[in-house]
Simulated scan of single mutants.
Amino acid sequence: MLFADSGLSDAQITVLLAIWSTTAVVAEVPSGAIADRFSRRGCLVASGVLQAFAYAAWVVFPSFWGFALGFVLWGLGGALESGAFEALVYDCLAANGDEDQYVALNARVDTVELIAQVPVAVVATALFSWGGYPLAGWVSVAMCLASSVVALRFPEPPRGSGDEHAGYFATLLTGLREAIPIRRAVIAVALVYAIDAFEEYFTLLAQDWHVPTLWVPMATIGLPLLGAAGASLAGRLRWRGWVLFLAGLVLIAAAVLAVPLALVLVGVYYGLYRFVLVHVETALQHRIDADTEARATVTSVAAIGSEVVAFAVYGAWVLGGAVAVGVLVLVIALVIWRPQ
């Protein structure tokens, strides 16, 4: 929908996506340090504003350079939000001695995010049919700005246990150093979160498995809902080391069947995957030193790792489709295996 009637070639679209990915990778850790040194709530506010400007650029300048500007702004906005949100939520809970509630809250956030994909997709389609991309774009600008207004109301507990006069680069280096002792948790988040890149191929799976094009949206609409179910269960059940391994086996089974009904198995895989993702993200937040002033930076280190590992997911898809991705999931499951 973003590139509808843009006149851009496939090569230009590929370059634009590369610009977006590169911007996100380069800005990820530095933006985490900004959140730690200055304000995590401020980063969330700025994230919404930058992404609003990205949509505006796409609407006002529907050309290659307009899209390039928008993707740079979008990448910067996403980097500012990444790390800052998790750190702010954890700090707010820690301020009241409720750190143990992070897994439940993280599960709720993940659940709502996935469920929201369904009505958002319906509304976006309706807006596009009524007023084309300009209408959908300007409504998106308004929603991004509204998210910044909401973020302004987030509480932000004071953080003064460290050196209040430490500079930005000192904060950045502190975060990088603190990621080393807990590297196992950082690597686990990077590996597991990277798997989410496979979600982009769900519609292609439906088409490859002989779902009529007209029915592809309806055939895949249940997948984020099953993912939401898995995320919700993560707030109630403990993680077992075999869950991600089971997810990989289910995905491989679905790929071998390669029929429309196999999408149900893809949904089961996605639910199991989101269950594990909530738990590894929570484990990382618990492993970060409670007295650190660089929580967002450490979280961003894991995020940048996931951006890099995501290329392995893309490569697996190119080389062997869903079967290869399932094998990659099995490998990642073995790497992060934590017997209980």
Rank of each mutant, 00 (worst) to 15 (best):
L8I: 12
S21K: 04
S21H: 11
V25S: 08
V26K: 15
A27G: 05
G32A: 14
S39N: 06
L50A: 12
A52K: 11
S63C: 02
G66L: 06
G70Q: 05
G70C: 01
G75F: 01
G75A: 02
E86Y: 03
D91C: 01
G97S: 05
G97P: 11
E99G: 01
D100N: 09
Q101M: 06
L105K: 05
N106S: 09
R108V: 01
A121T: 10
T125H: 08
L127H: 13
G131S: 13
L135F: 08
C144T: 00
C144E: 04
S148R: 12
S161Q: 08
G162Y: 09
E164I: 13
T171M: 11
G175N: 14
V189W: 05
A206T: 00
W209L: 15
L214Y: 15
A219P: 14
G222Q: 11
G227D: 05
A229D: 00
A231V: 02
G235H: 04
R236S: 06
W242V: 11
V243P: 02
L244K: 04
L272E: 08
R274Y: 08
E281Q: 13
T282W: 00
I288Q: 06
A290C: 01
D291R: 14
A294D: 10
V301Q: 09
S306N: 07
F311T: 15
F311Q: 15
A312H: 05
V313K: 12
G315T: 11
V318I: 11
L319K: 06
A324T: 09
L328S: 10
L328A: 10
V329G: 07
V331H: 06
L334D: 05
V335N: 07
I336Q: 05
